[in-house]
């Protein structure tokens, strides 16, 4: 049960086989998705018809490549926009929440902490629906009483951003709080003692210390927003983010262009992962 304790060969061998199979199970779908992006066939399935870049660069039907596929490219753009908004918002509120919970005592703090965790416990579909219901109530109320049709309260990008922001903020808060907890308060006092104002202390000492956590939270937030499906599905309007566009395409029956876009997503994630590892190194 430990590498230092001798074991029978058969036991060893079967344990390692199990681990091997586990990782095959873990990686197989990803490898399959990636490799069929280069299959020169109209369907992402065997037989292998030879290697091609068509699913990225070809500009004519039926083998319309990713870079010429208007709806998918548009989806990437929308997702990128949404992810940027969600990341910015959730880092801002996450940082503020982290200070609130780590630095201040107030009544019902315990209860507030449970509330803070709530968005992680509620299934994404329900979170999306509840926001849909509420914004609809608001929009109808305004329309009935004042007669204005508030377009932004109808399903669309604003609601998508708000829906994702609702639960991603909790994650950002947890990540940033964890680092703030480790902060040595005497650093702030030292800076204050050396003549810095409260604001300068925050700007020159506390925030630089939190920066790796804020960047880390940002990477996670961006990724979760980009990949989110459940909450988005309920709130989406006419502008479809990438996951929704892909889902629609998947229901129609897919061509390897979906593999191409998946590969693109994986590379993007890998890049983000790399950034976050570099950030970890920095601290």
């Amino acid at each position: 049960m430990l590498p230092t304790i001798p074991r029978s060969n058969r036991y060893n061998w079967s344990y390692q086989l199990y681990i091997f199979l586990f990782f095959v199970y873990l990686i197989a779908p990803l490898v399959v998705v990636a490799s069929f992006a280069f299959n020169d066939s109209l369907f992402p399935s065997l037989p292998w018809k030879g290697f091609t870049w068509d699913w990225f660069i070809n500009d004519t039907q039926p083998k319309l490549g990713l870079f010429h596929d208007r709806s998918l490219m548009n989806g990437i753009g929308v997702s990128f926009f949404v992810a940027c908004c969600v990341t910015g918002l959730s880092i801002a509120i996450g940082t503020s929440n982290a200070f609130l919970f780590e630095r201040y005592e107030f009544r019902f703090k315990q209860f507030a902490y449970i509330l803070l965790l709530l968005p992680l416990v509620i299934p994404g579909v329900i979170l999306g629906i509840s926001i849909l219901v509420f914004s609809n109530t608001l929009a109808n109320g305004v329309e009935d009483h004042i007669g204005w049709d508030l377009e932004f309260l109808r399903p669309g990008l604003l609601l998508v951003v708000l829906g994702q922001f609702a639960f991603i903020t909790t994650i950002a808060t947890l990540v940033i709080s964890a680092r703030l907890k480790k902060f040595d308060r005497s650093l702030e006092e030292a800076a204050y003692n050396l003549g810095a104002s409260r604001f300068e202390v925050l700007r020159t000492i506390t925030l630089p210390y939190l920066r790796p956590a804020m960047l880390g939270a940002g990477v996670v937030a961006f990724l979760m927003s980009f990949e989110n499906f459940n909450t988005t599905l309920m709130l989406v309007g006419s502008d479809a983010p990438l996951t929704i566009a892909m889902y629609d395409r998947l229901k129609e029956g897919s061509t390897p262009v979906l593999n191409a876009v998946s590969l693109f997503l994986m590379l993007g994630s890998a890049l983000l992962a790399l950034i976050s590892i570099l950030v970890q190194k920095e601290k």
Binding site: S186, A190, A191, Y192, N193, L194, I205, P208, Y209
Partner: peptide, 19 residues
């Protein structure tokens, strides 16, 4: 306020800024 007092403090654990 402490940031205006003409006294300075060397902290027990020094509190040098690691960043």
């Amino acid at each position: 306020p402490p940031n205006k007092r003409p006294v300075n403090l060397v902290f027990q654990h020094l509190a040098l800024f690691p960043m």
